[in-house]
Write a protein that binds this DNA or RNA. Structure first.
Lengths: 335, 335
DNA sequence: CTGAAAGCGCTAACAC
DNA sequence: GTGTTAGCGCTTTCAG
C-alpha cells in the first residue's frame, strides 16, 4: 500500500480514455476493441488496480457471492466438523470458483432465521446453497417462498418447491442392506436417526430389503455421531448380547463408532458382524478392517447445485435431481 | 419478495424522520435516543428491512468480512478435506461470528497470488486469516508487506513480520517422543514431512528427545496423507522387516494410515509398535486401538487469531502467540 | 439529539 | 467503438 488507492477514474485519466471504457474493458465487454481491452487490463495489472467490489455491487445490484449455509439441527451433536459435510463444502467451493462466484460461509446457528432478509435483501449474496436438510425444513421453505434463489443438498425425493440435489438414499439403504443379506447376515441392525430426511430414506431402503428377505428389522435410533453409535452398540451388547450379525449404519462416522464397540469385545468383523456405512469418507478406506460404504458423488452433486443455482439467478427454474451412488465393498462386509 | 425492496430513505419517510436518524438508529449509535432507536429498529423488522451492505460498505470503506484462505501446497495430496484444517475453519467461523464478522472462504488454488490486491484492494474483505503456512511463505509475506491486516495459523516460532498463532510444535514433538520412549520404545520412526514449517518443528522436538535418550533417529519423509503413510510403512516393513518399535506421526491421519499397515500384518499395537499422532481429531478416539495424540487447542487459537486480526484492523500491532498443547494418552502407546 | 447534503466508486443508459 | 452523465443506497461531516 505504498500509493494511495487508485480509482477507475484515475486509471481512465492515466490511459486518456473515459471511465466507461475502462469499466467495460476490465469487465471484458466485447463492445470494446480487443486491443483497447488488452492495453487497459495490462495497465490495471501494472498499477495494481482492482475494481472496488462494493461500488460495483451497489451499482450493478449483484454480488457474485453465494452464501453456503451448513444446516445442523440444534439438538444433534453432529458438529460443524463432520467430515462429510465439510467435504461437500469443499467441493462446492471449487464448483463456485469455477463459475467466478465467491463463497460466504455460514451455519444455521449464527445467521438469523430469516435467510431471505439477512443474505439476499441485504445484498450480501445473490443466492443460497443449503448443505443438509436437517430435521426441519422451515427456514428453507420460508426463504424459498420469499423467492430467494436457493438450492439444497439433501434428499431429492422430499417434496419441495426448491431444487434438492442428493443421492438416491432409498436405493443406497436398500443396496447396503441387500449386500449384508447376500453376505449371509440375518439380523441386521439399522443404526441411525430415521427422523432426519436423508436418513429416513436410507431407513426405508433398509426396510424394503429386510421385508423382501423375510427377516426381522431392528432399528436402533441414535444421534448421528460416532460416540452415540459406540455407546448404543455397547449398550445393546450389554443388554441382549450379540443379538445381530449385521449393521447398516447411516453414515461412516456412525459405522466407525459401532466398529470400535465390536472390536473392543473381540467380536469379529465381518465374520460375527458385517458392516456397511454411508458416505465413503477417507477413513473408510483407512480403517481396519476397511469399511464398506455407499459412496455419494459429492463432486458431481456440487457442480449440479451450482448449475441449478445459476439457472435460478438467470430467472429459469430448476428441478431436484438424484446423483448416482455406488456400493464400495471392502473388508467389513466380505465373508 | 412481495413488495419491492425498501430503502433507508423509504423507511425514514415512513417514520417521519431523516435518513441520518434511521441510519444511526439501525447502527445502534448512542447519539440517538434509546426510545427512537427502539422504535426504528422495530419498524425495520416489521417491514423486513435490511441495510444494503454494498452501499454501506462503499460509503464506510469497511466490509466486516474476513477472507479465510486455506493454504495448501501445490504438490501435496493433502486435500481441502483434511479434517484438521476444516475443524480449524469451523472454529474460526464461530470466533468471527461472535465479533460480527463474516467469513469469505477461499483456498490458495483459486485466489490469484496477489492476495492484497484481490481481497483488500478490491474491498472484498478487511483482513485475511491464512490457515496453514505450507512450505512457502511467499504469498503471505507479500501480503503482509503490502500492509494487509493478516494473521496466520501456523508455527508461531517462524520468524515473521505478521502474527502467527499456533501450537508449540517443538514441545509437542518432544512430548510425543518422550512418551514413546517412556513406554519402552527404542527405535522410533518419525513419519512426516520435515520440510513443512509446523512439522519441521515437531521433527526438531523428536530429534531432541531422541538425542537426549541416546538412541538413533529414523526419519521417514512422506507426503502428509494417510495413504502415503500406509504405503511408506508397508514398504519399510517389506524392505527391512520390523525394524522399529515406535512411530511418532506428524498428524493423526498419518498415524491412522500407519496403523492400518501394522494391523494388516498382525503387528500388535502398542506391544510391538507404540504410536502417537498429532491433532487429536475425532477419529483418534474412535479408532481401535484408540490413538494417543497431541491435542491442539484450536478453539483458543481461533479466538486469538480473530483478536489479533481485529487489533490490526484498529491500527494496533499484534505478536505471534503459542497456544498450549496437551498429550492425550490412549491405548496406542500404553504398555 | 436530529437534519441537510455531499459523496463513496462504479456501471449502464443514452449520446455521438 | 467510445464518452457523458446520472444515479445505486448508504454514512458522515457540519449545522442547528
Amino acid at each position: 500500500m505504498t500509493d494511495k488507492k487508485l480509482t477507475l477514474a484515475d486509471l481512465a485519466k492515466l490511459a486518456g480514455v473515459s471511465t466507461s471504457t475502462v469499466s467495460r474493458a476490465l469487465n471484458d465487454n466485447p463492445l470494446i476493441k480487443q486491443e483497447t481491452r488488452d492495453k487497459l487490463q495490462h495497465l490495471a495489472k501494472q498499477h495494481n488496480f482492482s475494481l472496488n467490489t462494493a461500488a460495483s455491487r451497489l451499482r450493478s445490484q449483484k454480488t457474485n457471492v453465494v452464501a453456503v449455509i451448513i444446516n445442523l439441527d440444534g439438538d444433534t451433536e453432529q458438529s460443524i466438523s463432520d467430515p462429510f459435510l465439510l467435504k461437500v463444502v469443499g467441493e462446492i467451493n471449487l464448483a463456485l470458483n469455477k463459475q467466478g462466484l465467491e463463497l460466504l460461509l455460514s451455519n444455521s446457528f449464527m445467521a438469523s432465521d430469516d435467510w431471505a432478509n439477512y443474505f439476499i435483501n441485504s445484498r450480501r449474496a445473490d443466492g443460497i446453497i443449503v448443505v443438509g436438510q436437517g430435521k426441519s425444513q422451515a427456514n428453507i421453505e420460508a426463504a424459498a417462498n420469499a423467492g430467494v434463489p436457493l438450492v439444497v443438498w439433501g434428499d431429492p425425493k422430499t417434496p419441495s418447491n426448491y431444487p434438492i440435489v442428493g443421492s438416491d438414499n432409498y436405493l443406497g439403504g436398500r443396496l447396503a442392506s441387500e449386500h449384508l443379506l447376500a453376505a449371509g447376515a440375518k439380523n441386521i441392525v439399522f443404526l441411525g436417526d430415521p427422523g432426519h430426511a436423508e436418513i429416513g430414506e436410507r431407513h426405508r431402503g433398509y426396510m424394503a430389503a429386510i421385508a423382501a428377505a423375510n427377516v426381522t428389522p431392528h432399528v436402533v435410533s441414535i444421534d448421528i455421531t460416532s460416540r452415540a453409535a459406540y455407546q448404543a452398540i455397547n449398550q445393546l451388547l450389554l443388554d441382549k448380547g450379540l443379538c445381530f450379525d449385521g449393521i447398516m449404519a447411516c453414515s461412516d462416522m456412525v459405522a466407525l463408532g459401532a466398529m470400535k464397540a465390536l472390536k473392543e469385545r473381540y467380536i469379529s468383523i465381518p465374520n460375527d458382524v458385517a458392516l456397511v456405512g454411508f458416505d465413503d469418507i477417507a477413513m473408510a478406506d483407512i480403517s481396519h478392517p476397511s469399511l464398506s460404504s455407499i459412496k455419494q458423488n459429492t463432486q458431481r452433486a456440487s457442480v449440479l447445485l451450482v448449475e441449478k443455482l445459476l439457472a435460478q439467478l438467470m430467472g429459469h427454474s430448476a428441478q431436484s435431481q438424484v446423483v448416482e451412488i455406488e456400493l464400495i465393498s471392502r473388508q467389513s462386509s466380505q465373508r
